[in-house]
Design a protein around this nucleic acid. Structure first.
Lengths: 226, 226
DNA sequence: CTATAGTATTTTGCATACAAAAATCAAACG
DNA sequence: CGTTTGATTTTTGTATGCAAAATACTATAG
C-alpha cells in the first residue's frame, strides 16, 4: 500500500493481533474470518496474514470448514478432556526427563516463572490473567526444552491446543489458581531435586486437576475470556 | 515455469515430497534446504513449498537455525528410545480407551486380524511377511479408531511415521513374531473383555518388547512394532 | 598463508496479480 | 412460499516481483 520498509515482522504482528482478538472476544467463537479482511484491518498484505492463520489453525485457535469457510474454532468439552489426558501422558514423561537433564539455568528460569505466577495469584485484574497465562505457557515450554527431546516437544505442541487452554483459563477459580501455582513450585522443586518420579507425579496431578476443571467448566456457558 | 494454475493441491504435494525425501534419506540429516531449490525440483513456485516447510518445521522434521539456514532436523540415536517410550504411553492409552468404546464389529475385526496374523506366523515366505505387516498395520489402526479420539490418532500416526518406514522385516526373529502374535491375541481378548487396564498393560508390554528388539538391533534400523 | 574487509550472490519476507473453487445472491419455477 | 438453478462476487491457492537480511566469495593487508 504505502509502507515499503516495514522491518517489524509482519507475520508476528498479524499472528498476535488475531490471536489477541480471539482471546479478547472481539472475534467470537464460530465467527468467519477471511485473509483479505484481516489484512485490510492490519494494513498488511494477505501473505503474512495467511501464514499467521496457518499457525493459528495448527494451534487450534482457528479451524477450516469445508471449502472457503475459515472460522474461529469452537471446541467440544470432550475434546478438552481428551487433550488434558494426552498432555498428562506426554508432559509427565517430559517432566521426568527434565528432572534428569535440565541445566541449572533452566531450573533457575523455572523458579523465576513460578515466582512470577505466584506474585500475580490470585489475579486482581485482566492483566494479571494475561501475565499468569503467559508465564504458564512459558513454564511448560521450558520444561519440555529441558527434557531434551525435540520429538517429544513436537508431539506435545501438536497435542496441545493452545487456544483451548488460553480460553479456558478464566474459568479457574482463585483456589484453582492458587493450587496451580503451588503445583508449579513443586514441579520446579522436584526438577531441582533431580527426582524424575516426583516431577512426573506432580505434573500428572497438575494436569488431572486441569482436566477436572475442564470437565466442570462444561456445565457453564463461556462468556469469552480476557 | 509453464504450469498454468495447477489445481492439484501443490502444498500437499510439496509437503509429502519433502517429507518423503527426509524419511527415505534422500535429504540427509542436517542438510540445508532452500525454498527455491525445492520449488525448482518440484516444478512449483516458492509459495506452496514455503507453506509445506512451515508445516514440517512445526512437526519437527525440519529446523531453522539462526538467519537463513534451514536444515533437515537432526535425528539423535537416542531418539529411537524416546520414540518407543512415547508410543508406549500413547498406544497404551489408546488400547485402554478401545476397551471402553470398541463396537462389537470392531472387536470382531480385531479377532479376524489376529487370526490372520497367527495363520502366517512364523512366516515362511516374503508374502507371509507382507500379509503380517498389512494385518498388523490394520490391527493398530482399528484399535485407534475404536479409541474414538481423533487427536490421539493423529498423534500416534505421527509418532509412528517419524523415521519409521517399512523396512523392518528382518529385525524380528521367529520367536519375536510368535510372541508378537500372542500379544495381539491378548490385546484383542482384553478389549473384548472390556478391561482397559488389561489392554493397556499388554500393549505396554508389546511396545517395550519392540523397544528392546530395536535396542538389540543396534543403532541402524528402526523396526515397526508388530 | 591467514585473517579481514568489502563486494557479490543467495535466501527469505512481504506485496501483488490472477485463476479456480466456493459462497452469495437472484430469478425462475414448482 | 419454498426450492432450485444460474450468474455474480468473494475467497482462497498459487505464481511472481522486489527489497532487505544473511551468506558466500574475493581481494587485499598483515
Amino acid at each position: 500500500m504505502s509502507n515499503p520498509a516495514q522491518r517489524t515482522a509482519a507475520t508476528d504482528q498479524a499472528y498476535h493481533a488475531i490471536r489477541s482478538d480471539i482471546l479478547s472476544g472481539t472475534l467470537k467463537e464460530g465467527e468467519r474470518i477471511t485473509e483479505q479482511r484481516m489484512a485490510e484491518n492490519l494494513g498488511l498484505s494477505r501473505t503474512p496474514v495467511r501464514e499467521a492463520i496457518s499457525k493459528l489453525i495448527h494451534e487450534g485457535f482457528v479451524e477450516r470448514g469445508t471449502g472457503y469457510t475459515t472460522r474461529v474454532a469452537h471446541f467440544e468439552d470432550e475434546e478438552l478432556e481428551q487433550m488434558f489426558q494426552i498432555r498428562k501422558l506426554l508432559e509427565s514423561y517430559g517432566a521426568a526427563r527434565a528432572a534428569e537433564f535440565a541445566t541449572d539455568e533452566q531450573v533457575e528460569h523455572l523458579k523465576e516463572l513460578s515466582a512470577e505466577m505466584s506474585a500475580h495469584t490470585p489475579p486482581k485484574s485482566q492483566s494479571d490473567y494475561k501475565i499468569i497465562s503467559a508465564a504458564n505457557e512459558k513454564f511448560h515450554r521450558t520444561i519440555m526444552e529441558a527434557a531434551r527431546s525435540p520429538r517429544l516437544s513436537a508431539l506435545i505442541s501438536m497435542a496441545v491446543n493452545v487456544g483451548m487452554v488460553a480460553r479456558m483459563y478464566h474459568l479457574y477459580s482463585d483456589e484453582d489458581l492458587i493450587r496451580s501455582a503451588a503445583h508449579h513450585h513443586e514441579i520446579t522443586d522436584a526438577i531441582a531435586a533431580r527426582s524424575p518420579e516426583w516431577a512426573a507425579s506432580v505434573m500428572s496431578s497438575h494436569l488431572l486437576a486441569a482436566a477436572s476443571m475442564a470437565a466442570r467448566a462444561g456445565q457453564r456457558k463461556v462468556p469469552a475470556a480476557f
